[in-house]
Design a protein around this nucleic acid. Structure first.
Lengths: 394, 394
DNA sequence: GACGCTTGTTTTCGCCTCTGAACTAAGATG
DNA sequence: CATCTTAGTTCAGAGGCGAAAACAAGCGTC
């Protein structure tokens, strides 16, 4: 029934430091003066703390701003090169590895194609480890500068150090990807579900920015969601919360590749849409979907309705401030049909929660999964900037 | 993106005091020695803090326990009579007001019948205010000893001081119940949805005890849920999260009294069950339901299936550690059909989250709503024991 | 250009909290 | 009654915060 186990006077410093660092990160270049206002800390505390951070090279000066008739403000910002984060997207058809600086600017990236149905865990792990070396050397960054590696994968990731993955549709059942990777690197690892890392990206840098209660849905080959409660991704007891794609919207409905029936994914996943439209794919799903959308087939309207039902269930159950529709299928549908999707959602929601929700499209492209994975590293950095690193660097 | 705005050294004391008080409350009579172990605080801190609490009469001694060969331990407990909480249940057919001590023992209660379709807000408010006076005088408790009044109501309660309620099925649309009550009392008020207060009760004192990620569902005339994430009730952006009864399980299905179609409530709410079974009620729904359950009608199996779908959606989306089935319909169904309900849920859930969930029956009776409402007061007390009160009392 | 005015940043000082260690309390044992 | 054991209290020290004084760095004015 709640477990805030705060304790000693040192925790305060740590906590306030995190607050300050976050303010600095998200407010761009800011003066100490602004920071006192933004954080609620006293000027004295801001002064000593920024002095620490400057000394550790986590924060750097960024020019001055004249203030009418007084001492000019010195602007401060997080040093984007203090450290780097690797973000990895393990998808159905490829493994993508990106290197980001602390501002989440991509410095290098590399892709490895996967032959469908060839998702050998060892191979994937080798791709990732090779990719890390490639992006580091491409960008001229040394491993000591890397704060961690975030990995977004399909399926359910067990909590725990081994990063064990269950992804039925991927052919992975109990694959300890984290352990496999740890054989090749000693950097901190963060393995998470890809829909969640994409959600993290949209929440921090995309359409979800600033929302504290939000749902970011991913529509693609699979269908998933990230539920954000009070600013934090909601994971549930075994980290599998958000399996929206396999919630049932038609009791005893269409069979789904998960083995169940009537799942949302069996109506609005790309394979389901094409199947229902009677399209036999020649390989390019995006083109196929464009064709369906252009055809004015009744399947389009049905899809919108089903999607509306799925979204409405989120509205009623979660009562989010914002719903972000992401994933390439989601964006492609949304670009032409967003008003219809909103209408369908409204028709199936209670009035009050619907009125409190805005439904928008994601605005990060296909790199969102890798970006979000890197953001896991950033989040950790902002929460507890390692003093150990600093002494090593200094 | 998270807002832990901790600040000064005083917050530590407040936080640690709350930790200590909670440990004391939930561990029953305990020695200071035990408390150091339970809270992680140092013996010194426990000593000074318990001295404070004893001085304020919030904590009292409760005997001794000999320890083989040393100084005996002095047991401490929260003083159950330090203060009292009023819990109110505003239901379709009655208003119930209960007075509880800090141990949540009911000291007095009173009921007021409501004629169906006669839910005049003024009348309800008068009943509540009258009820408070009655229970106080029955129990010989003075208003100064009351820490607050919790009220559980149907429908959606807007966040804010006025306790504005939207309950379509109740005929209330924008009723400021909080404001109405404040005209007759100056005690702290906590107005919340009845399904949520019931959930609170089951979470703190019933089958949900100890779970930090749980869902407590209420099946009765209406159908709702309390979602507990990390020990805290999840409310969403406008406090309406948990409207499980109006999530859709059959796209375009049976019409629901909310105006929508295919809602879970339209299949497993009591009216829906009786309607689908072709029963014309003669007024006693409990008896009617017992009749349907005894009849071996296929409606029973269907109901279990629909309920399983609804529960499975919670399992997939929320990934709770525990699902508690409450409400009189839920308990009546569960008593004979729990294994079937579990089976139906398993059939519609993903394997991993289902394996992590246990589905159990609620064990608090029909008073759970009022008890939970009073628990809102208790929760506040445990979080921030008012020093103002103390100086006034001492 | 000296002086005051304004605004931003740092330093000083007092107060608060926690903890470890020394100390006191209260019983058991022989 | 001396000693042992366990429980609880007191004290000194370290670390943290905020208010306010001090310092810094410009502008404007006479």
């Amino acid at each position: 029934m709640a477990r805030p186990q705060r304790r000693t006077v040192r925790d305060i410093r740590r906590g306030n430091r995190a607050v300050l660092l976050r303010a600095l990160y998200f407010s761009g270049p800011t003066s100490r003066n602004d920071l006192t206002a933004r954080t609620g800390l006293s000027a004295a505390t801001v002064s000593t703390m920024t002095a620490d951070l400057l000394g550790e090279n986590i924060v750097v000066e960024a020019g001055q701003v004249e203030s009418d008739g007084g001492r000019p403000r010195v602007l401060l910002r997080v040093n984007p090169e203090y450290g780097f984060a690797v973000g990895v997207d393990v998808a159905e058809t490829h493994v993508r590895v990106g290197l980001f600086d602390l501002e989440m600017t991509e410095r290098a990236k590399v892709d490895y194609m996967l032959r469908p149905a060839r998702h050998d865990p060892e191979l994937v792990a080798r791709h990732i480890l090779a990719g890390v070396e490639v992006v580091l050397s491409d960008a001229g960054v040394s491993p000591e500068q890397v704060l961690g590696i975030g990995v977004g994968v399909p399926g359910i990731v067990e909590p725990g150090a081994d990063g064990v993955i269950h992804a039925k549709t991927f052919g992975w059942d109990g694959v300890p990807l984290g352990a496999l990777l740890r054989r090749g690197t000693s950097l901190p690892l963060y393995v998470d579900n890809g829909a969640k890392t994409m959600g993290q990206a949209e929440l921090w840098f995309g359409s979800g920015r600033g929302a504290s209660d939000a749902v970011i849905v991913l529509l693609g080959v699979g269908v998933g969601a990230t539920i954000v409660a009070d600013g934090t991704t909601f994971r549930g007891v075994s980290s599998s919360a958000g399996e929206w794609g396999h919630t049932k919207i038609v009791a005893n409905g269409r069979p789904c590749r998960c083995g169940g029936r009537g799942c949302l994914e069996a109506y609005v996943g790309i394979e389901a849409i094409l199947d229902r439209a009677g399209v036999t794919s020649r390989g390019d799903w995006e083109e196929d979907l464009a064709g369906v959308l252009a055809s004015k087939s009744p399947v389009v309207e049905e899809t919108v309705t089903y999607l509306g039902v799925g979204l409405a269930n989120l509205v009623n159950l979660i009562n989010p401030e914002k719903i972000v529709i992401g994933g390439w299928v989601g964006v492609q549908l949304g670009e032409s049909l967003l008003p219809d999707i909103r209408r369908a959602t409204a028709a199936n929601s209670l009035a009050e929660p619907y009125a409190a929700t805005s439904i928008v499209l994601g605005r990060l492209g296909p790199d969102a999964v890798a970006l979000g994975a890197a953001t896991l590293v950033l989040e950790e950095f902002l929460n507890a900037p390692q003093v150990a690193r600093i002494t090593a660097a200094g």
